[in-house]
Simulated assay, not measured.
Amino acid sequence: MLSYDPATEVDWDAPLPEDAYGLNPEWSTLYGTRLWQEMTEAQRVTLTRHEVASIMSTGVWFEMILQQLVLRDQYVRDYATAEFQFALTEIADECRHSIMFARACQKMGIPAYFPKRPVVELARILKTVGNAEVAYGGILVAEEVLDVMQRDAMRAPNVLDLVRTTSRIHVVEESRHMRFARAEIRERVRHAGTLRKRSSALAIAVVAYFIITSLVNEGVYAAAGLDTRRAVAAARNNRHHHAMMRTGSAPLMDFLGTSGLLTRPSSAIYQRVHML
């Protein structure tokens, strides 16, 4: 399996060009809005750097949850199986990713952004009781959304090399994690009844809602010198960003549909965060 060591693969000592974005600007929550047109180029650069730092911070937060979910699921499993050994490999990858994202934020000089306190506390329930397809469904949602954004970032010449490299590492290693999560979901729902599928579909959608709404902290707008209230309203009504989210989420929605995990109630939740 192809794995990278971010400590050596990333040039942590390289200076950061002042004009390079933190993420592909088309993924900025304000891109395409009137407010984006009014912003200076320096504000756009600052905003995208804080947005990517917020996304990375949320990634670290959820990767810590992910590791606990996988460890609980593999507790007292047959150590000789490929599934058990791959699960531990995945956890090792996630540890490196969390350190990588933390160092990237530190390099950009941006402090950690955290989800709102109620979300943090609700997540304690997920990491304590989440199991089977709900656990792997939450993992898949988080990784699929990040994957689409990072594939765009790693190909964009106007994005920081730091972000392009960390995105490449994450995309390569997470591709096998997503295959693992999909295989686990298929196996867990193979003989599941209708009631269990419906309840799991709803639980996964709720997890997705909190992940998506936590990706970009409202503090990023103040950091770019913007009026937070106006910026939040502009982001909430940004049709361009909504379309990007729907396009990026299409493969995930197709998979959940074919797995019997896309019901009318869960679809309504995905629509609220523009994943469907």
Results as ranks from 00 to 15, higher is better:
residue 123 A to Y: 06
residue 91 I to E: 01
residue 140 L to S: 00
residue 109 G to N: 10
residue 146 L to I: 14
residue 91 I to C: 02
residue 125 I to C: 08
residue 119 V to A: 06
residue 96 R to W: 03
residue 159 V to Q: 11
residue 116 K to N: 15
residue 141 V to F: 03
residue 128 T to N: 13
residue 111 P to W: 07
residue 127 K to Y: 15
residue 93 D to C: 02
residue 123 A to K: 07
residue 126 L to F: 06
residue 115 P to G: 12
residue 142 A to Q: 04
residue 115 P to V: 05
residue 161 D to G: 13
residue 126 L to S: 11
residue 86 F to C: 05
residue 103 R to F: 03
residue 108 M to I: 06
residue 140 L to H: 05
residue 106 Q to R: 13
residue 153 A to R: 13
residue 82 A to G: 04
residue 152 D to T: 07
residue 112 A to E: 11
residue 121 E to D: 08
residue 108 M to Y: 06
residue 121 E to R: 10
residue 114 F to A: 15
residue 129 V to W: 14
residue 118 P to S: 06
residue 144 E to Y: 14
residue 79 Y to F: 02
residue 125 I to G: 06
residue 137 G to K: 00
residue 159 V to G: 14
residue 140 L to C: 03
residue 88 L to V: 11
residue 98 S to E: 12
residue 89 T to K: 07
residue 121 E to Y: 14
residue 149 M to G: 08
residue 120 V to A: 04
residue 121 E to G: 02
residue 81 T to F: 04
residue 146 L to G: 15
residue 141 V to E: 01
residue 110 I to G: 07
residue 111 P to H: 06
residue 93 D to R: 01
residue 137 G to R: 00
residue 102 A to P: 11
residue 137 G to W: 02
residue 152 D to L: 13
residue 83 E to M: 10
residue 114 F to L: 13
residue 133 E to T: 07
residue 159 V to C: 12
residue 96 R to L: 05
residue 159 V to D: 13
residue 149 M to C: 04
residue 153 A to N: 12
residue 147 D to L: 09
residue 152 D to P: 00
residue 84 F to M: 08
residue 155 R to F: 15
residue 106 Q to C: 12
residue 109 G to Y: 09
residue 160 L to D: 04
residue 87 A to H: 02
residue 109 G to T: 03
residue 146 L to R: 12
residue 115 P to C: 09
residue 81 T to H: 01
residue 94 E to T: 03
residue 90 E to A: 14
residue 153 A to L: 11
residue 88 L to D: 08
